[in-house]
Simulated assay, not measured.
Amino acid sequence: MFKTENDILPDNVAAAVYEAEKNYIIQKNDYINVEVYTHGGERIIDPDFELLKETGLQANQMLNRPNPNYLIQQDGNVKLPMIGMVHLAGLTLQNSDIFLQKEYSKYYEDPFVITRYVNKRVIVLGATEGQVIPLENENTTLLEILALSGGLSNDSKAHNIRLIRGPLNNPQVYLIDLATVEGMSKTIKKILPGDIIYVEPVRRPLPESIRDLAPIVSLVTSGVALILSLGNL
């Protein structure tokens, strides 16, 4: 195991994490964070703070006020301000945003909602196609996390697993080899909340080339079929 940061691009990792998280299915006992904005979320994209200048210091204080977390109860419901009890268990975070925007539209003009999962979790990317694994036990090992994500398939490079720890603009990156007994014995034993695990997928050039060419082949085939049908008229 050794640190390596040369081929980790923060923007790419952040985008992959976002995609994985928005598809996370909300479950009972989860804690979520819900932010509600009006007018399509214009306050979020206020780079010059013009809106805050217009509304004064009080709005600025409201903006910096901590946003509480909300517990998904055993029946899948959660109690949120103004709208009361709503059922969110079973929804993805993205679907939760859409659902809550409709609920808050009863009170606000063009609401924009951001739902976040705030439990301790680990993100698994790469060959697993992006998953959020709740970290229920802080003594969980890398092998256990990989097992929870579905394990390593034939499409995974067991010798090239990256563990990304810390802020993405300056992370610690570890290269882990699980293809050998020696590599497994040297792996990081304890996974920390917020860790990102990247399992490099096996590249198969021929199938990928065929997949990329499929639309072109389909278009050519359709064109030839059309020409032949016109010739028979």
Rank of each mutant, 00 (worst) to 15 (best):
R204L: 10
E208H: 00
D212W: 04
S218M: 11
S218W: 07
E208P: 00
R204G: 01
P193F: 06
S209D: 01
L206M: 13
L213R: 03
I216F: 14
P205N: 01
I196M: 02
R211V: 12
R203Y: 04
I210L: 14
P207Y: 01
R203N: 09
P193C: 09
R204T: 09
I216W: 09
E200D: 12
P201Q: 05
I210A: 10
P207R: 12
D195W: 12
Y198P: 08
R211H: 01
L213Y: 09
P215M: 04
P205A: 02
P215S: 11
P205V: 03
V224D: 12
E208W: 00
V224T: 15
L206P: 00
S209Y: 03
T221C: 00
V224F: 08
R203W: 03
T221M: 06
E200G: 03
S222V: 14
T221I: 10
R203E: 12
I197P: 00
L213T: 13
L219K: 04
A225V: 10
I210P: 01
P201L: 00
A225S: 13
V199P: 01
V220H: 13
D195F: 00
G223S: 05
P193T: 10
V217P: 06
V202K: 07
D212F: 05
L206H: 04
I197W: 03
P193D: 10
T221W: 05
R211I: 03
S218P: 00
I216T: 15
A225C: 09
E200M: 02
P207K: 03
S222R: 14
T221H: 05
L219Y: 04
R203I: 07
V199I: 13
V220R: 08
V202H: 02
D195M: 09
Y198D: 12
P193S: 11
S218L: 11
A214C: 08
R203K: 02
I216R: 14
L213D: 01
P215L: 05
Y198S: 03
D212E: 12
G223V: 10
Y198M: 13
P201W: 05
P205I: 04
I197Q: 03
